[in-house]
């Protein structure tokens, strides 16, 4: 779920923008470097962006009335790292606000922080810590994608709780309440998303492994082994 226009008070909207901006600037710097080194990455970045757009527009109405959706950011975090992903996400979120009236402009900063920065960062940390171990490659991608999705929702709940703390128990109890509402739909969704993206990754490994090697996503050996098994 994206926080929608007008939901956050002005000062929280500004604070999240201030948090998001340095990450975006660093992302743009990295993006420039990647594209200078390898122009072939541009179509892949475009397609991942398009996929994030479409996956996160699949709004599934949840029991509680709010809506949940997959985020699709994990795959991009694995391939390009969290900072470039934040730039891709910022563009996607802007498009969603303007194409589908999904999200908003003043709250764009807050949405970038949850879906573009914290989520992918969580996924990336999982991926980096498992990459060079003997854990199965697809399991790594599954965990990275599922956690990127989950952490997006944890961050969104935190953003909502900070803006609207409860009278009794303050931020903690409103955080628990917002989390509880999302958990019903989001935990199964995160698992499904992880499975789907891991299968997409399997497609990439079997059909176009060269780009994964050039971006050094996984060690060559692992990819070769996975290909020979398939």
């Amino acid at each position: 779920m994206h926080i929608m226009e007008g939901f956050l008070p002005l000062y929280w909207a500004v604070i999240w923008w201030i948090v998001a901006l340095p990450c975006l600037i660093f992302g743009i710097y990295q993006l420039k470097k990647v594209l200078e080194a390898d122009r072939e990455a541009l179509p892949l970045l475009g397609v991942t962006g398009g996929f994030i757009f479409i996956l996160s527009s699949l709004k599934l109405p949840s029991v509680t009335g709010s809506c949940s959706h997959p985020t699709g950011t994990g795959l991009s975090a694995v391939c390009f790292g969290p900072w470039i992903t934040s730039v891709v996400c910022a563009i996607v979120l802007l498009f969603q606000a303007l194409f589908l009236a999904h999200g908003g402009l003043s709250v764009l900063g807050a949405n970038i922080v949850s879906m573009g920065i914290i989520g992918p960062l969580a996924g990336y940390i999982v991926y980096r810590s498992l990459r060079d171990t003997r854990v199965n490659m697809y399991l790594t991608v599954f965990l990275a994608c599922a956690l990127a999705d989950l952490f997006t929702y944890v961050t969104t709940s935190l953003e909502l709780a900070l803006a609207y703390p409860a009278e009794v128990g303050g931020i903690v109890s409103s955080f628990v309440l917002f989390m509880g509402i999302f958990a019903v739909t989001q935990i199964p969704l995160a698992i499904v998303e992880g499975v789907v993206l891991a299968l997409v990754f399997k497609y990439i490994v079997s059909l176009k492994p060269d780009i994964l090697l050039r971006l050094k996503v996984f060690p060559e050996e692992k990819i070769r082994v996975a290909r020979s098994e398939a």
Binding site: K32, L42, G46, F53, V87, V88, L94, F95
Partner: peptide, 20 residues
């Protein structure tokens, strides 16, 4: 807006319609 961001934005814009 930095050239590289704009570039990526247009590619994403195009691929949304291709994917759709």
């Amino acid at each position: 807006v930095p050239e590289v961001v704009l570039d990526l934005a247009m590619i994403i814009y195009r691929s949304i319609f291709m994917i759709m």
